[in-house]
Design a binder for these strands. Structure first.
Length: 423
RNA sequence: GCGGAUGUAGCUCAAUGGCAGAGCACUUGACUGUGGCUCAAGUGGUUGUGGGUUCGAGCCCCAUCAUCCGCCCCA
């Protein structure tokens, strides 16, 4: 190992190959968002710690945020999530914005966690939100955007599913069991852990939280009742809308989906890779009714979801859904025959560029085999040679690097010939 | 914060406590106007770092750093 200064723990370096994956995801995310008429926006990457202290969980603020003192002595934080910034920005212009607001964003976030598979300290996240409409149909639209994205990257419903539940439905079920309001958070965590714990231990944990045996049995029957949604008007309307939107096959009701965030009040949903080894959610979101009022705005209901780039990137790669990496964005290499023809090649490259082609010229005279080898490694499609014979006769050699065929073309016909070859 | 594993050439990895190696990649040549295939030669190392044990450490011991996997947490 040479002595090099290491990158910061938990960050990722984007070599061109990784950058291509990031841009692939960004392109699909943008397409899905824009297809539904959402506007792109962004917030500051650094915020005061107070913004998160108000509403985000204590764990997030105290242990998982990159927080430091600026030169003026204020505590600032690299943003760990976007929603508080969204709430502030909406609240600040609440009187002048045209509602419903439909916004999407894709940008960097930081969380000081232990890096492992599917999780890094610096990552990109897609956020999509609609504010100003409170209806199951609006919830369905957000879910449809997520499903549209999954479909667009080639993840079929056999591969990825969105599980849906509703906080209000669960609350009324918990009421019926006589589970008091102050135990809701504990029960919520309990439900979240059900798939991670052995059944006997989970039972013991439940009783330990203060549930009695009748409540435990009742809870279990709720969590195993996949027809429970029929009791909820909201979910009945949600599924009708999902069918009309053409994404119903991606969505399943699951009473076990709770989501940790405190601010969700109605519909909640999470997408998972059904077959893969990765147990982490692809994206997740839900309806939040109180967020705007909590940051000082007028009460305003919203619904949204977020997707990190790390998990979806791994899934797409493992599923072979990432397009082949093309090293060079240029299709054409102009070789330099020798020093006396150097400027000749530069001028030829310029001429081709001005016609709209992406053209790379070898940077200096070198042996032709070396230049061809370079073009081959960069997976370029065409190499051009202008040597003494060609200049004398007004020709250019066009070599098709895929087939190996090469022909001499009159210089005046070069651009149309190259364009034809590239088709 | 806790636990497990791994650090040797640019990459993937070998090497009973006894001369630090292979494949791929790279450079050159076979081939002075043509890449992929083949063959040959060559370049490339403070074995993550710092200590210790030993006649002798890539290997054993201690510490430390980094990476990976899992737990916790997951807004």
């Amino acid at each position: 190992m040479k002595k090099t200064i290491a990158s910061v723990k938990g960050t990722r370096e984007f070599y061109p190959e990784e950058m291509a994956l990031r841009n692939f995801i960004y392109g699909k995310v943008r397409a899905a968002s824009q297809m539904f008429g959402y506007q792109e926006w962004d917030a500051p990457f650094i915020e005061t710690i107070d913004l998160y202290a108000a509403k985000s969980g204590e764990e997030l603020v105290k242990k998982q945020s990159f927080t430091f003192e600026d030169r003026g002595g204020d505590l600032v934080t690299l943003r760990p999530e976007l929603t508080p910034s969204l709430a502030r920005m909406i609240a600040a212009k609440q009187g002048s914005l045209t509602f419903p607001v439909r916004w999407w964003s894709f940008g960097p976030f930081w969380r000081y966690e232990q890096p492992q598979k599917g999780r890094s300290r610096e990552f990109f996240q897609w956020n999509v939100d609609m504010l100003g409409v409170n209806s199951p149909e609006a919830d369905a639209e957000l879910i449809a955007i997520g499903a549209t994205f999954l479909r667009s990257v080639g993840l079929s419903p056999e591969r990825a599913l969105i599980y849906v539940n509703n906080r209000r439905l669960m609350d009324s079920e918990f009421d019926a069991l006589g589970i008091p309001v102050e135990k809701r958070l504990d029960v919520s965590n309990l439900v979240d852990r059900r798939t991670k714990m052995e059944p006997a231990k989970w039972d013991a944990y439940a009783l330990d939280l203060g549930l009695n045996q009748t409540q435990l049995d009742g809870l279990k029957s709720i969590l195993e009742n996949f027809d429970l949604w029929k009791k909820s008007d909201e979910l009945t309307r949600l599924f009708a809308a999902l069918e009309a939107l053409g994404v119903k096959e991606y969505v399943k009701f699951d009473p076990n989906i709770m989501r940790g965030l405190l601010y969700y009040t109605g519909t909640v949903f999470e997408a998972f890779d059904v077959t893969g080894s990765l147990k982490r959610a692809i994206f997740g979101g839900g309806r939040y009714d109180n967020l705007l009022a909590d940051v000082g705005g007028q009460p305003l209901s919203g619904v949204g979801f977020a997707m990190g780039d790390v998990v979806i990137g791994i899934i797409l790669q493992e599923a072979g859904l990432v397009p082949d990496f093309v090293p060079s964005p240029a299709d054409v290499l102009v070789t330099i025959f020798d020093e006396s023809f150097w400027m000749n090649s530069y001028a030829l490259a310029r001429e081709l560029r001005e016609s709209g082609l992406n053209v790379m010229v070898f940077p200096e005279p070198a042996k032709l085999p070396k230049q061809f080898k370079f073009a081959d490694k960069m997976k370029m499609k065409i190499a051009l040679v202008v040597g003494p014979d060609e200049v004398e006769k007004g020709l250019v050699v066009v070599k098709n690097l895929g087939s190996g065929e090469q022909v001499q073309v009159r210089r005046e016909a070069l651009i149309s010939f190259v364009n034809e070859t590239l088709k």
